[in-house]
């Protein structure tokens, strides 16, 4: 599984990375967390507000810092 965090490196993006890691730990899952900071790459996902969360190339959230619980719920549904 590849999880991408879209954002220019703002504090919110770093918090989302942290929350994602916590969610993965909670579920005992392994995934590559990739930070996408290039504006052109971010735009190619069609989102307008950052940070964005992409799981296996599918955008699951934009403009919000999801909490670990939210991410756990999304990952469990996959």
């Amino acid at each position: 599984m590849v999880i991408k965090i879209l954002g220019s490196g703002c504090p919110n993006c770093r918090r989302l990375v942290k929350h994602t890691q916590q969610a993965l730990d909670q579920l005992g899952l392994e995934a590559d967390i990739v930070k996408v900071t290039d504006y052109a790459d971010i735009a190619s996902y069609g989102i307008l507000s950052t940070p964005g969360l992409v799981i296996d190339e599918q955008v699951v959230s934009a403009g919000r810092v999801l909490r670990p619980d939210d991410i756990v719920a999304i990952l469990s549904k996959k």
Binding site: S8, Y39, A40, I42, A43, I47, L48, S49, T50, G63
Partner: peptide
């Protein structure tokens, strides 16, 4: 900081 992604998106 979100104005640039919005600009590109538009």
């Amino acid at each position: 900081c979100s104005s640039i992604p919005i600009f590109i998106g538009f």
